[in-house]
Design a protein around this nucleic acid. Structure first.
Lengths: 244, 244
DNA sequence: ACCTGAACACCGTTCAAGT
DNA sequence: ACCTGAACACCGTTCAAGT
């Protein structure tokens, strides 16, 4: 859906909103959030900055459309053949978003913007629905649907954003530098914190060094799932049977 | 700590980094992220844009310093007199951040930037330490310290950001409009989604209308705490006794 | 209907010149 | 040491003019 045709170097076809969004994503991937410019975009599309405004209202809308396209693609790859548990499906959806954010680091900031700035847009319901549907299948009481889905979604986006930043930073450390070297640097910085003020952070610093981001991410998902499916959350009633 | 002296209209004292950061926070609160400008800041400080660069390297550093100051203040208010449980302390710290983000809506985006873009800075360790220390007191196995703290921190920042956006949006809806009216609008938008594609989102839409943000936020914290303190997370060993 | 590109009103940042 | 303010190299956005 995102990889239809190579961008037209000389442009035989007229501009289209779809094509503009596609090139915008390429530009964002290649140059980061600051690299998306109406002038740079115009250059890649062999036109001026003004032409784009015929198809897109402003930069915010363009970023929103790019975000929606990437998220829709990431959430579309779920049809696993064999029947799976809701837990496994939630892990799969979470990993889909994890990889999308890793492949498009600009997505992390964009997603928080979309979720908070325009919850009525298409991005928020898409993610919410994808996770929430499985939460419902988990058999948690209806009272907890919203809370449980919120915890999962916020964790997924936050942790995936963290991971993507690690990947991105590792790249800037040098050509041969990898993620392990970057985590090593952060770990060292944390180990040099004041022992009186930061005992905990110092204690987990070493763990940062050896941790597998994907593994770590899934551990967080499982921890949230444990809370969601626990007999009854503190101060709440016992769960009702599944409603599927 | 943030409200020392009113800004010097004619400036008797020389510029100071501390004073600049203080006025930057005022400007951010009053005009939002887009309103913080070296020119606007210079005007409030009765100077030109160039003068600020003597005390602050660039805009990023200024935003980082503003974020750190607000977060430090929010986390400093924890000395509850009576002895409390780690759970209560985590709730208190979470609420402190919740209110700080509500009072300074620009903080939400800034915090994700700080956490992912500069984990070696002061903001990330501050938050991590404040939550992590209590997680440790909960008696969870050391293996889970990092995961548990991550889940809590990501949820807190994500959900608090969401809440702050609701507050901010409600304000723009009109002078008399309140948060309930805004949530009502989002709720209505969700109820008009396609029933085949968005059954879950439609189902929880009504719940959005009646929900108390603070209550909702704390319910998420409790859900995470349930997962963290559950007998043993799936695929992990049994917890070890507390290490405090 | 769609595109062009100059022009406008901004930015962050630099830097010679001042005190 | 610290400040001033003009200047530079950008932005997003608009809009008369073209096809």
């Amino acid at each position: 859906m995102a990889t239809r045709t190579r961008r037209p170097e000389r442009r035989e076809e007229p501009l289209s909103r779809e094509g503009i969004v596609e090139v915008a994503i390429e530009l964002l991937d290649a140059t980061g959030e600051g690299g998306l410019t109406f002038r740079a975009l115009g250059e890649r599309l062999a036109t001026g900055p003004g032409a784009i405004y015929w198809h897109v209202a402003n930069k915010g809308e363009l970023l929103g459309a790019a975000t929606d396209a990437v998220v829709a693609a990431a959430l579309a790859v779920e049809p696993a053949g064999s029947p799976t548990s809701p837990q496994d499906e939630i892990r799969a959806v979470a990993l889909g978003l994890f990889h999308a954010i890793d492949a498009h680091p600009w997505l992390a900031a964009q997603l928080s913007t979309q979720l908070s700035r325009s919850p009525w847009g298409s991005v928020a319901p898409r993610i919410f629905e994808s996770i929430g549907r499985r939460v419902r299948s988990l058999g948690v009481p209806e009272d907890s649907w919203f809370t449980a889905t919120s915890v999962l979604v916020h964790y997924i986006l936050g942790a995936a954003g963290q991971n993507a930043a690690n990947t991105a930073h590792a790249r800037t450390l040098g050509p041969g530098a990898n993620r392990a070297e970057f985590l090593d640097a952060v770990s060292s910085a944390w180990e040099e914190l004041d022992p009186d003020d930061y005992p905990f952070t110092r204690a987990v610093a070493s763990r940062l060094r050896e941790h597998d981001d994907r593994e770590q991410f899934l551990a967080g998902i499982d921890l949230a799932l444990t809370g969601i499916t626990a007999p009854h959350p503190p101060g709440e009633q016992a769960p009702t049977p599944p409603t599927t």
